[in-house]
Every structure is written in C-alpha cells, then in structure tokens.
Amino acid sequence: MTPLSGAARPEALEGAAKFTVRDLDFYYGDFHALTGMNIDVRENSVTAFIGPSGCGKSTFLRCLNRMNDLIPGTRIDGTITLDGEDIYGPGVDPVDLRRRVGMIFQQPNPFPMSIYDNVAFGPRLHGIKKKEELDQIVEQALMRANLWKEVKDIMERGGLTLSGGQQQRLCIARVLAVQPDVLLMDEPCSAIDPTSVQKVEDLMAELKSSVTIIIVTHNMQQAARVSDETAFFLQERQGEPAELIEFGRTAEIFTSPHDRRTEDYITGRFG
C-alpha cells in the first residue's frame, strides 16, 4: 500500500475498505473547509468522527453521500471511492448513491405521514407497489430498528406522534428499508433522551454485522463505547481549513494517541 499523507494509518485496518478517501479538499464557495483528508473506512465496522464544533466532521460526512451537492457553490478536490468506485466520477447518479449510503440526522425528521408510510417511502421510490411485499419490508425494517414491538399496533398513526427517541429509530427503520450498505449518522443521539440513546447504541452494535456505520458524535464516551475506529478532526485556526489529525483503532486513540492535539482534546484541554 502506498504511504499516506495525513492521518490514515493502514496498519489500523483489517478487512476490506468500504470508503477510501484520498487527498480530499472541500470548499463552500471561497471558503476552504476541509483539506488533505485521507481515510479508509473498513467494511462492517463502526467508525466515529470526533472533534470540536465546526471542525468539519459533518461536512466530511456529507461528502460521502453527496448531500453537499444540494448546497450551491460547493466544490470538491480529491477522490472518494465506495467499493472501489469513484462516487464523484462522471456519470455517477447522486440519487442512486444516496440509496446505497443512508443518512440519519441530528434532529429526528420523520415525514408528516403514517409510521407505515414513512418506512415504505424508500421501497416505494424503488417502485415496489405490492402490498404484501411492502408489508414484509416494513416489518423487517422496523424489527431491525428495534421499533416493531412498540409500533406494530399503531402503524397508521402519524410518525410525528412518537417520542423523540422512537422518531429517531423510525428514521433508522426508514433508511434500513432500502437496504443500504452504509449508514451515515450525524450526531444521532444529541437530540434524544438517555434511554433512547442506549437503544440506538445497542442498535448500532447489532447492525454493524451487515452495515458499515459512520457516526459523528460530540460525546467521547459514546465514541469510545460504540466505535471500532475513531478519526479526530480539528480546525486549528479560525478561517483555515479543517484537517484530519489522527485516525486509528478507537482503543488506541483513547488510550495512547500519537498526536498531542488528539490527546489534548480527549483529555478535555480544549474543544
């Protein structure tokens, strides 16, 4: 393997890389937001992105399913491959990419429609119309999201009538219904109650056998609990692009980080 600049340390990786990012720079118009990102996200693992607010974690996450395309004036340099395929390559349909790379947001955002219709939304986009088939997909997705027991008798109720934590699991079920390879989670637990946080974390442990998970979190205990590998992001000075400082096994990052800045952040000296 070629030696990598930046932070990706190949010796930390085992198994196939799902996402491979090389020399990524990202711009919002004139603002240079990210620079020199290199990272390999391993298949069927949980990777945590940590770092102080405004350090580009979410921006980077949104490069991975091209959500940033929706913001006018954004630009990207470098390459991101998913299973070896360049996701910014010519002819790649971002809509199709987003079906393979699902996303969970900080604020639970179910659609203002019934629980059933929320989960059936994705499959219906794919053109699945048969009731029995949809029923089965919906039930399976809700079971995988550990929500089935709570909602199986109230499927016609509006998704917004559920509690915050249930709404977040509904959003996870909605994404799982389209069988994504990757699940991007942008601070999925910062707007829900502690019991629900526990449920979502358990869920991540169950899901990672079949889905690659990348989670942005401000909660370092959470990163330590749920992730196999951790990436530390930092914007050193205001107005400069953020960088990926260190990337490695979670246990290593939290016990013996190589970079002093990582150590400072983890021990709470800044951020």
Partner: peptide
C-alpha cells in the same frame, strides 16, 4: 421543516419525488 426536505433527498428521492411525495 427543512429536515424533512433533507431526509427525502438523503433517502435517494429526486427533486420531483421530493416535491410531490
């Protein structure tokens, strides 16, 4: 709510699907 719009795009819906669905 803007989150709903985002969720729809993130689910792989096109602009047209997002608008009418």
């Amino acid at each position: 709510p803007p989150g709903i719009r985002e969720a729809s795009y993130a689910m792989g819906a096109t602009t047209w699907q997002t608008i009418y669905k």
